[in-house]
Simulated assay, not measured.
Amino acid sequence: MQNLVLFTSKDRDTILKARKGESKFGEHIQLIPNLTNIYDDIANLDVDFVLFGISEDIGVFANYGKTGTYKAWEATIKILLNIQSNSKTKAKRVLVLGHLDYSEKRTLTELKSTKKNVSKARTIVESIDKDVTHIISSIIKAGKTPIIIGGGHNNAYGNIKGTSLAYKEKINVVNFDAHTDFRAEEGRHSGNGFSYAYAEGFLKNYFIFGLHENYTSERIYKTLKKIKSINYNTYEAIEVRNELNFNTELENTLNFISEKNFGIEIDCDAIENIPSSAMSPSGFSVKQARQFINYFGQHKNVSYLHICEAAPTKKTATKVGKLITYLITDFIRAYGN
C-alpha cells in the first residue's frame, strides 16, 4: 500500500524517553520490519490489537470544516510510547503498524473552500476510503482488533465497510458524537460516512450517543425517525435536563447494538473543550468518554475502536495526545473482561 508508512524501530527509538528503573510502553510493542501483505504479516503475530493512524483532514475540508485532524496520530504516538509498561497497559499485546499518510494530497486543504476544491477533496476521500477499508478488513480477517487514530470522521465509512467485508455481514456501530454524520450522499466527506455505509448495506443498527440538539437539522431528525435501525439520545436530555441517566443509556445502547459485531466510534467533538474540528465548550467530560469506552470495550462483539476529529495545535498536542492515550489504554484494559 503506497500510502501506508510503517512504524519502524528507528521511529520508536526517536520518540522513546527511556528512564532508569522504568519500563516504557514503547519498549514492548510489536513492529513489522517489512510489509508484504497485511493479513499474512499479522495473522500469526501473538498480539490482540493493531494500532494505526490516519494522517488526513481532507474529509473535514470536503465538509467545509476546520482542518488539523491530520496531526492527531503524531501527537498520540509520542505520548503513548512513553507511558509505563505494566500488567495494566499490556504493551506486548499491541502491534503498532504505522499510519496512512496523505501529506502530498492535503496541500489542497490550504486552498479556499471553493466548490471546485471541495469537489476535488471529495474524490480524494474516495481513495482514502479504499485504503482504510483494505487495512481494516485485513486486520479483522487476521483475527486482530484495529485501533484507529486520527483523521476526520469520514474514515468511519472505511472502518464499517472493512469490518463488514471481513465478517461477510452488516455490522452495528455506536457513535459517541455531537453530530449524526448521516448527511446527504453528496460526495464523500466527514459528515456522511455513516449514511454512505448504511445506503451501501454495510451498516445495520446505528446508535448516536449524546447528539447535540443545537447542531442537528430538522431534516436529520426526520430521517432518524423514519429509519428503525437508527437510534439516538441527546446530550441535553442526559446532562442538561436530566431526563435520561448516563449509565442507563449505556445499557440501553448496548442492547441496541450488541447482538452483532459492532464498532466503537469516538468523535472528540463530543468531549468538552478538546481541540477538534468542531470544538465545543459544552460536552461530555473526559471521565465520561473513558467510562464509555470501558463499558463497550468489555463486550465480546466489539470489533474496533476509532478515535477521530481531534485537531491538536503545537500548544495543545500534549493535551490531545494524553487524552487519546487514556482512551486507547482504557480500551485495551476493558477488552476481554
Score class of each variant (00 low, 15 high):
K300P: 12
T234R: 08
N261L: 10
N261M: 09
N155W: 05
E265S: 15
N44P: 08
G150P: 08
R12G: 01
G143K: 03
G263P: 03
K112F: 14
T234V: 10
T76A: 02
D41K: 11
A197V: 07
T76C: 00
G143T: 04
Y39T: 14
I139E: 00
K144D: 02
I147K: 03
F207V: 15
L327K: 02
A72L: 10
I171H: 05
L224S: 07
V240C: 10
N175D: 07
N44C: 08
I293N: 04
A310H: 02
K17D: 04
P33K: 15
P275F: 13
S195A: 14
I332A: 02
I29A: 03
C268A: 15
I266P: 03
A237T: 06
D41N: 15
L203R: 04
K130Q: 15
S164M: 04
A197H: 00
F256R: 11
G191R: 07
N86E: 05
T89R: 01
S55N: 13
L165W: 03
N159L: 07
Q30V: 14
Y221D: 03
E243L: 15
R122T: 09
I328R: 00
Y39E: 15
Y198P: 01
T145F: 08
R183Q: 12
A18P: 13
V286S: 11
Y102R: 09
I147C: 02
N214W: 06
R333G: 13
N192R: 08
T316D: 06
A75I: 13
G263V: 03
L108S: 08
A184Y: 08
S127L: 13
F194W: 05
N172S: 15
D131K: 05
S23H: 13
P312K: 11
Y167P: 08
E200G: 09
Y196E: 04
F7V: 07
T223W: 04
Y39K: 14
S217R: 12
F296S: 09
Y196K: 12
F246N: 00
A121L: 13
T316Q: 02
K319V: 10
I307G: 02
G193A: 09
F207A: 10
I29V: 15
H212M: 08
K24H: 05
D41T: 10
K260Y: 04
E110G: 08
L45C: 01
L81C: 02
K10T: 12
V118P: 10
N205M: 07
N117P: 11
Q298L: 08
H179W: 03
I58V: 15
E236P: 06
H299G: 13
L81K: 02
N37K: 12
Y295N: 09
K141V: 04
I160G: 10
N255E: 12
N231C: 12
